[in-house]
Design a protein around this nucleic acid. Structure first.
Lengths: 238, 238
DNA sequence: TGCACCAATTTGGTATACCAAGTCAAGCGG
DNA sequence: CCGCTTGACTTGGTATACCAAATTGGTGCA
């Protein structure tokens, strides 16, 4: 029963000694940080032992994760959803429209103090440039922006989007140059929202989204090659 | 144990003899058609008897419905989600952007035969004008339009939207005049997509969306008064 | 040596048993 | 007569037992 068997089919040591957090949270973390590799089989009874919970809450968590697009049913069993490049391209097409809607509404509704609060978030990256922090800031910026729209469905949509691109973002071997570009664009977006220049901010955020998309697509392709060298196929699609 | 007790708290005869379909499907139907009134308490053990299933699949269905926004947790128990007018207004704000994105992409990607297929759907309403048929056609038109976008996230968003407005649409006391208006606008939208006139179709669909929004808001307010006359508060919000 | 078939095990799906917490009502005291 | 307390019951949450299907590994035959 122990380890081995290559990769597909073992979530073994991914949860060593972890006892904190809900089942859903733990699984989500493990999947998003690639501790559970895309394509890995997930057996309810394995998790039962590993997480110390019973199957009922585990099944519930798996259904949640399925809704998040992080777990899919492969026939009878559950597997960690493969990173699907084609799907990711659709996410970004979707994202352009969602972000555009968000910033348009933000231009109408954002309060100056809200904008300054977000600026403080992105400016943290000026002093600290850890990989993990960069990940968080990139997520938070766009989620906070969504909050400014005041529309719960746009907020939910942005949450969904950030979940679906999270693993791709995790694959990025951070290029410092790109980071400063990101900060500059984020800052520019805030300026334009503060100035209520809706059309311009839409233009900028679409450009920003496409920039991010290209970076992620590149990172994914590199990651695929890296894993293929180990005999693994982690990524679907062209 | 039988019936009575007024309204909040009885889903009693809503499932008489119904044995077909999954638990989720049956509950969803009952909620969308207002056989289960907004605000009604839902007890897992009641459903266990009524549907003849066990609690496990019932709980699963309830979680699904919660994700759909059709069921909410009221403290410890589950209740049928109240129709929230404020939320509905947010849905329509969201919908404007989603539909705009959809028709823009549809202009790029729709095949002539796709457009004709949809036209056939809405033209059914010319011969038959039953209430239920009108409901279905209105739903199908927008879902089919979403398909033309070729983007699974826009399709999913449109599905979500149609679910969230379904109960409001069910409350409409059909005004024949509005129906012909709807058909005309739907037809116009198809024409513009076929002609690839993206900007114009966006303009028209936004206008259409606002028209629908006003009708539904009116219907909801009337329905609220109607139910209040019976001593019930079915609708939340202003 | 390779293929086909069979049995044992593992899987997810379902039903049920158990628990703690919350609800409601009846009864007691003011 | 009103309000508070208390206890029985109902509720959702969790753990577990049971089932059918499907996978898998091994064995025997060609």
């Amino acid at each position: 029963m122990e380890g081995g068997k290559g990769i597909r089919g073992a979530a073994d040591a991914a949860f060593a000694k972890s006892g904190n957090g809900s089942v859903y949270t733990q699984l989500r973390e493990a999947i998003l940080t690639l501790r559970l590799l895309p394509g890995a089989r997930i057996a309810e009874r394995q998790l039962e032992k590993m997480l110390g919970s019973s199957r009922t809450p585990i099944r519930e968590a798996l259904h949640q994760l399925e809704a998040d697009g992080l777990v899919v049913r492969g026939g009878r069993s559950h597997i960690v959803a493969p990173v699907d490049l084609a799907e990711l391209m659709e996410v970004f097409e979707y994202r352009e429209h969602i972000e555009s809607a968000i910033v348009r509404l933000a231009c109408q509704r954002a309060q100056p103090q809200d904008i300054e609060r977000i600026r403080a978030i992105i400016d943290v990256a000026l002093h600290d440039d850890g990989q993990e922090l960069w990940f968080e800031i990139g997520t938070d910026f766009h989620l906070e922006l969504a909050q400014l729209s005041g529309n719960r469905f746009l907020i939910r949509a942005m949450n969904d989007i950030m979940t679906r691109v999270a693993r791709a973002r995790w694959m990025i071997a951070s290029v410092p140059e790109n980071r400063s570009t990101a900060h500059r664009e984020h800052s520019h977006i805030l300026d334009l929202i503060a100035a209520r220049r809706a059309d311009e901010v839409v233009e900028v955020i679409v450009k920003h989204t496409r920039f991010v998309q290209e970076n992620l697509a590149k990172a994914i392709r590199e990651t695929r090659l890296r894993f293929r060298a180990e005999g693994l196929d982690i990524i679907d699609g062209s």
